[in-house]
Each structure stands twice: as C-alpha cells, then as structure tokens.
C-alpha cells in the first residue's frame, strides 16, 4: 500500500434488495486521519453503504478497496474496528462486559493462534479499552444489566480492544443517554488523536459533531452532499431541540433477506 492510498475507497456501489435498488452507484472515499460522517434519513441507504464497505453485503456493482486492497482479497481485518448499531440480546446466556470486549482481540490473534487462552497483551488491551469508555467498574457485570448507552460503549470498547486503524460505527448515538454520548465522544476523540480514521453512519451527530471532519449525505441511494457538516435548519437548529421523532424499527442486517 502506498502512503496516499485511501483507507476506504468505494467506487460506484450499486445495491438492491430484491428488485428494489437501494444504492445507485455511490462513491465514497475516506483518507487516513479523516472522520467522515455518512448522514441521511432512515431508509436512505446509509447503513447499506457501510455494510457494503465491510463486506457484510455483496454489492451488485462497483468495487470496494480497503487500505488499497480489493475487499475480496483483504485479510488484515484487525485494522478495522466495527461497532454495530446495537448488541442483539443473544440467546440469554449471560456474558460479562469483559468477555464481550475480549472478542475484539480475535482479529489480532488470528484463528487457532494462541489457542490456549489470551496472553498478557490481550488482557492489557481489553482493560485499556474498558478504561477508554469508562466501564472498568462494570467489567465483570453481565452485559444485559447495562443500560442501552452503556452497552453501546461496550461495543466501542470491543472495537478499540483490537487496536484498529479504522473505526466503522453504525448509528453510534441512536437512543443513547447523554452521559454515554459524552463518554463515547471522548473515546472517539482519543482514537482520532492517536491517528485513527473514523467512518460513521448517523441519523444525528449530537456531541460527535465537533469531531467530524467531513459529512456525506445520502438521500434515496445517492450522495447529495459531500463536504462540511450541514447546519441544522428550522426548529432542528434550536439549542434545546429535543430530537424525539420515532426511529424506524431496527432493520435487520440485509444478508438474511430483505429488511
């Protein structure tokens, strides 16, 4: 990889669910050190774009390159930390915060390497990630006893534990309380100051807005804006505007059929 190769290069991505086109030839590039926010309404195709970048969806057309490598041949997944929208409750088997965050080390460990338990480096990285999101005291609590915002912080800690170069976040602030949003924003700020690159999808930016270096707005499967973070307009711009309109139910990842 050459130094000026973009971290993410998605060129002319076309995705459709069944017969319904969701993305019409979208191009998105993210260079090292950028914090790019993909904005758009529910159903605009912004989450689909992110899932195509990560290879969770196979686009019908276009090409994705990660760190200069075509996605199909990309193997350095430890360089990417993915923070999904939320943690599915799982099948009811309890898991502690530390156990979930430790999953973030697997991409670094490689399959079957270090078969007999994680080493000191793994434990240290997990602890550091928990400190980063302010959940050290909850490390041995079951994830299910945490609030929604705290669970979101668990997911970012899991991604940070792998010490990635690129963080990809899907709706990190949706339905998250103020305290968790702040903890989230400062963890992200530290990640960026260490030279990390961020690609995030959001419906609204909240306290993350000052961090964002570039905003891309997706509307009906096309990019309609690429540049400065657009200013909220009308009553949305009010300092005490409470953003309460109902969010669509969580759309299941599309790999198991139409959402």
């Amino acid at each position: 990889m050459t130094g000026n190769e973009p971290v993410v290069a998605a060129e002319g991505i076309v995705v459709g669910y069944g017969g319904r086109p969701v993305l019409h030839g979208v191009t998105l590039r993210v260079t090292a050190g950028e914090v790019v926010a993909v904005l758009g309404a529910n159903g605009s195709g912004k989450s689909t774009l992110i899932k195509s970048v990560l290879g969770l969806l196979s686009p019908r057309g276009g090409e994705v390159r990660l760190f200069g490598t075509p996605q199909r041949r990309f193997r350095d997944w430890y360089r990417i930390g993915y923070v999904p929208q939320r943690l599915d409750a799982g099948g009811g088997v309890p898991a502690t915060v530390r156990e979930v965050v430790a999953s973030g080390r697997l991409a670094r460990r490689g399959f079957l390497r270090g078969l007999l338990g994680g080493g000191a480096a793994d434990r240290e990285a997990v602890s550091a990630a928990l400190v980063d999101v302010g959940l050290t005291q909850r490390a041995n609590d079951p994830v299910s006893t945490l609030s929604g915002g705290q669970q979101q912080r668990v997911l970012i800690a899991r991604a940070l534990a792998g010490r990635p170069d690129l963080l990809v976040l899907d709706e990190p602030t949706a339905g998250v309380d103020a305290a968790s949003q702040e903890a989230f924003a400062s963890a992200l700020r530290r990640f960026v100051s260490r030279g990390g690159t961020v690609l995030l999808v959001a419906h609204e930016l909240g306290p993350l807005a000052p961090l964002v270096s570039r905003a891309v707005v997706v509307h009906h499967g096309n990019i309609v804006h690429d540049g400065q973070v657009p200013e909220p307009v009308g009553h949305h711009a009010g300092p005490h505007h409470d953003h309460v309109h109902p969010h669509a139910p969580y759309d299941r990842p599309g790999i198991w059929g139409a959402p």
Partner: peptide
C-alpha cells in the same frame, strides 16, 4: 454465536 456479523468483520 454472540455476534456473527461482528465475527465476520473480524475476519474469522
């Protein structure tokens, strides 16, 4: 088993 999508992005 916990989060198949995340495991996929981890390259497992």
């Amino acid at each position: 088993c916990h989060d198949e999508e995340y495991a996929r992005v981890s390259g497992l």
